[in-house]
Design a protein around this nucleic acid. Sequence first.
DNA 1: AAACGAGGTTCCT
DNA 2: AGGAACCTCGTTT
Length: 215
Amino acid sequence: MLETAYETGLSGPSRLHDLFVTHEGMSPGDYKTRGAGLTIRYGFLISPFGQALVMVTDRGLAGLAFADPGKEREALADMSSRWPNATYVEDLAATAPYAARIFNPAEWRADKPLKVVTIGTDFQLRVWEALLKIPMGKCVAYSDIAADIGSPKASRAVGAAVGANPVSFVVPCHRAVGKSGALTGYHWGLTRKRAILGWEAGQLSGGAVDQAEAG
DNA sequence: AAACGAGGTTCCT
DNA sequence: AGGAACCTCGTTT
């Protein structure tokens, strides 16, 4: 499974983003090539859900995390561990346009696909692609995703893979919930998960009323 | 309502 | 290899 690069053209009217995902798959123990020779530019920017850490390469978006003030180093360490051999450069000018676009629904256009570069195991990639199929404002259970990708008993493994998603929000990991509908967990805080889902509901109803969030 | 075991995958030793 | 950790789930106390 080394060095298997593939491209996935994911399209459909119900999805939040039209993504052109390029994946460079590597085995878990292969630390030699993880980001070697790659320059990653990062910046901390304002988002509707708190300060966000955006990481980009010349091939596209490489990471998106949430980092409240004072937690910047922590978030950067968390994210950079996925590409341990890359060179990191703080670059507000390069990252700001990504943030502006990602959090502005008017910019989500199929004719202008957002390029994303991710790294992960085959299993993780299957889970992340399943997440991309969830329409905005909807949620699916971890067990449903497990069934989707052909491992019906792997719901807990799905949870772990969802949590390992390096491009949160763009890959809608917040739309995975427990079988009962309860919001069981979120790497960046359950409060933020609720905020994002409420925001999506508001987008769907034209931003006028968020009737889905009464209570 | 809380405790428990099975469960797939990944990470660490 | 072995064990623990996970954004789980269904069943049992």
